[in-house]
Design a protein around this nucleic acid. Structure first.
Lengths: 204, 204
DNA sequence: TTTAACCTACCTACTTGTAAATAGATAATG
DNA sequence: CATTATCTATTTACAAGTAGGTAGGTTAAA
């Protein structure tokens, strides 16, 4: 199997969709079989065991997410825009029906997952927190953000807010809950210097 | 079956433990059977279908949580202490090995759940948000909290932060992540008027 | 003619759920 | 008081479906 094999990625795509909606323990090779259009045995050909699928998927997600982070850093020089775009990335996920962040979902399933998948999930959070902390620190240096705690801790709190808000936004079928949580956070945690900009509230 | 039947509640207790750790789709009547010490058929005697178990459990959790909220309101008159105690309630849950908030977990499983359970979960969040909003508003009126957004939105954002922080605190096996996320809010959202007190940071 | 990609057929274990039987306690009746 | 009936909690036995996974075969292209 050469790695850019289309089927390989179609399986991962299908698995990602299912997990982001239903979680790791509520989808089966049978589900994949139907959406991808090949038999379950063929899926085992690519991913012999379910946890190998989980590992490959989480790694791909993490790597793709890092690409997005790099892209944001390249396209948006100022810290507030970077935070704004970061939030919108999650908002876009929420836009796809009933989906939340893959790693947010897997964080909930964490105790049932094999160690190789767990490691990937932790890495996802660590990397995201590091990127966010850097942006927050940048904003503080530029005088545009004001917060007292360590940038690392503020970054963690912000990511937690987004992950939690995705959950509640979904159960209330109200994307504004994510937007508003992020806005609430900016106004408060990122303090006085509120130059975040045009307040795109296409509210409910 | 008279309702305060001990077995009835032992089943709910076991189910709650399992769900808070593993989620709704990763536990079975067989698991319950082993921990409660009766056969699966006997569990069906109390809860004919799994979603009836889910509904009864979520309702009980919600009602017990409301009792705690009332108790906090009775024992702590000032808003900052109430917020503090509220946070500590989640911290206590996290203290029980690998557990997160039942309704936080079920929010992740939401798309796979029957409507009767979904309704209970939404009610849990609505009730908690209302209680928090009232406390925040109280604090603002007393001049001890400072925040710009609507109390309702701030309450939602805060609860999202706690739920999200429980997830990350668990995967990193670091309860301080929850403490610190909450502290981040206090310092900022609860703004300038930072009289919350002794800063219990038994940090990592 | 080897090999990548896929299939059929199958296995074992586990899932939720039902039906019928049973043991023990409680109550009713002669 | 002895017996009969009733009720509650539980069991055994089983059904029907699904889970993850394996063995071995087919096909088409390099």
């Amino acid at each position: 199997m050469n790695i850019p094999n289309p089927t390989y990625h179609r399986i991962l795509d299908a698995a990602q969709d299912l997990i982001q909606v239903r979680g790791f323990n509520a989808f089966s090779y049978n589900d994949l079989s139907r959406t991808v259009g090949i038999k379950t045995a063929s899926i085992h050909y690519y991913f012999p065991r379910k946890d190998e699928l989980g590992e490959a998927l989480t790694r791909r997600y993490r790597e793709q997410f890092n690409l997005v982070l790099t892209e944001i850093s390249e396209q948006y020089p100022d810290a507030p825009s970077r935070i704004e775009r970061y939030m919108e990335q999650f908002l876009a996920t929420l836009g796809e029906d009933g989906k939340i962040c893959l790693c947010g979902m897997l964080a909930a399933d964490y105790e049932t997952l094999p160690e190789n998948v767990r490691t990937e999930i932790r890495t996802f959070f660590t990397e995201n927190e590091a990127w966010l902390a850097a942006v927050l620190e940048q904003g503080r240096a530029e005088g545009v953000f004001v917060f007292e705690t360590k940038a690392r801790d503020t970054a963690r709190a912000f990511l937690s807010t987004l992950q939690g808000a995705m959950l509640t936004a979904r159960i209330f079928d109200d994307k504004d809950r994510l937007r508003v949580a992020a806005a609430s956070w900016r106004k408060a945690v990122l303090g006085t210097a509120n130059k975040v900009g045009k307040e795109n509230s296409s509210a409910t």
